[in-house]
Design a protein around this nucleic acid. Sequence first.
DNA 1: GGTTGGAAACTTTTT
DNA 2: GTTTCCAACC
Length: 746
Amino acid sequence: MNNSILNQVSLNPEQQEAVLHTEGPLLILAGAGSGKTRVLTHRAAYLIEQGVNPWNILAITFTNKAAGEMRERVNQIVGMGSESVWVSTFHSTCVRILRRFIDRLGFDTSFSIYDTDDQKSVMKEVCKKLEIDTKVIKERSLLAAISHAKDELISPAEMELDAGADYYKQRTSAVYKEYQAQLRRNNALDFDDLIMKTVELFQNCPEVLDNYQERFRYIMVDEYQDTNTAQFRLVSLLASKYRNLCVVGDDDQSIYKFRGANIGNILNFEKVFPDTKVIKLEQNYRSTGNILNAANDVIHNNAGRRDKRLWTENEDGAPVHFRQFQNGYEEAEYIIGNIRSHVEKGEAQYRDHAILYRTNAQSRMFEEKLVHANIPYKLIGGVNFYARKEIKDLLAYLKTIENGQDELAVRRIINVPKRGIGATTLSRVGDYAAAEGISFYDALLNAEQIPGIGRGSAKVLPFTVLIQTLRARQEHGSVSELLEAVIEETGYVKELELEDTEEARARIENIDELISKVRDYDDNAEEPSLSGFLEEVALVADIDNLDEESNHVVLMTLHSAKGLEFPYVYMAGMEEGLFPSYMSIMADNPREEIEEERRLCYVGITRAKKELTLTAAKQRMIRGEIQYNKVSRFVREIPEECLDIKTETPGQRSKEEWESRREKRREAFLEARRNLRAKPFETSPVTVTKADHLDYGVGDRVRHLRFGEGTVLEITEGRKDYEVKVEFDTAGVKKLFASFAKLKKC
DNA sequence: GGTTGGAAACTTTTT
DNA sequence: GTTTCCAACC
């Protein structure tokens, strides 16, 4: 074992033990900052070193970002063969499996994936059909009930059985049943279905399960504390043959109960797998002593947890700061000023700072101040790029081309741009489709035969012709060519250009952004395909776009911050009613809910490496109303000896001054949002940075992260970027954008 | 069939 | 304070 991977790196005894324990179930209880990713990646490397085929290793994470990072690190340590290790999220893994085998469950393999908006639209239909007054029972709560059922692998039939005589439950199960029927008709799955259907597939088709059990002989699951029952079942099924299941988690960082995470999965792991080896990683390498003490003392107030206490060899560092302000405005001003002074003094860069808050709504004030101070920032969360109207419209065209059964997509675009097709025509078509037992789109193809449609059929024809033409085009050609054809043929952008408003221009810029995303996909995906692109789009989270390289302050919710670390962390809005949230205090089971909030607080505190600042405001505007909040209980749970407390005195300002500031703030915010709209992935300088020169030329040998080595055939200088044509030794000839491809001369 | 203005609802967190 | 929805108009 002399040349072993183990001798090349320094791992502490527990970490080493975890790496070495390759056979049988393994539970790693990894405290915050204890180097769990390091353990996982080295474990993968060690497995391969021991002769395990990389192809037989599966590593599951929760976000694409985490998967990407793990992939990169495994590549670094392992080198050859590392690309066959399957590193992916739960959802992507399931999609890949379902794309191959879902026909066995009666779906078509070109199924669509519905996002929250789509789910809502379906639910609206369902409620209309079942005559449910959505003012009495909200779509949202029905969807929540269904989602929860799916997390627990409860089918509509089971829910119905369980309902007994309870009218409300009966109603819910009827809605669930109809909702599933509609999804089925659209050949669509929602997020939760992705997991549940895969479990169903494995349970119904032993040969498919066996296939994947053979493939994934070694399984690792990251952030195990956040798995729900369905995900647990999925993993158990896969691991049941070889039993080489390694899960890593921290019960103190379980913050997704609302999304169905079952903390029992981690607390009872040893009961389900009796011969489990348990390893605790309690040494923290991330934070200062003071920060760690604060975290330890806060979390100690929770009752339902495995006992542990993180320790560190790091210095105590600065005390944790607590600042209370008159209002949210002064709070933001202080934080931004603090960040600026760090940067001006040369102590840190913008990207070393993160502002964390409980709710997305709190981001606004910080955005205003950051724009005003001309500080680059990146906002994570809020409205997803792919949820914007213009993007959803164009994607609906692509979905229609890919999956003609997706009625939601067809309905969305049939009259966009305007084709004079209205509600009457649509409902006739819908009736006809139902009567004939065919899909909505197939009914459109037979428009002239539909009774009572009149002139409508003439208006439908150009639409179906368009789709058929585009479908024919899809057969050969890239996804970007297809998207450009859609834009061209529909005149979507042309129409926006004619509008000539600020908003329309922003939309066009978003569409440009979409085009470059598609090109990037065409260039970098292993096997680019329309369904592959749609899937990537459906499964991205905003956090996946956080790029550590670019230099900006990061704004996000405490939830999004899990798994990240920053030298300077600000936790804003440390107030009773905000954090812990009003909802948790008022819940039926406040103790449990507040414990979850406390875990969230623990996650926030442990993100900080060097300095942690907590802030609160005495009065805060919430939904247009001023609230007066007490300081959060979590602040008081931090030991005094590592806390430095200051209450800022209110600044003396006249009423007029406030009024004029208000105006300025409004303007600043509107501008910020314009910028955000224009460049959804980066608020500051530019989206694509065209290098002023490339350090390779035609004929040079270059290396690409995924495609390996190759020879440069051609370099074309474009408006925004260089386009490089490379002949790869193994992957063939590819056209790549220089800024995306990050080619290295070798 | 499309546009517009005013009322209602909304905020906990997300793959 | 902001977004979404729907009714009344064109």
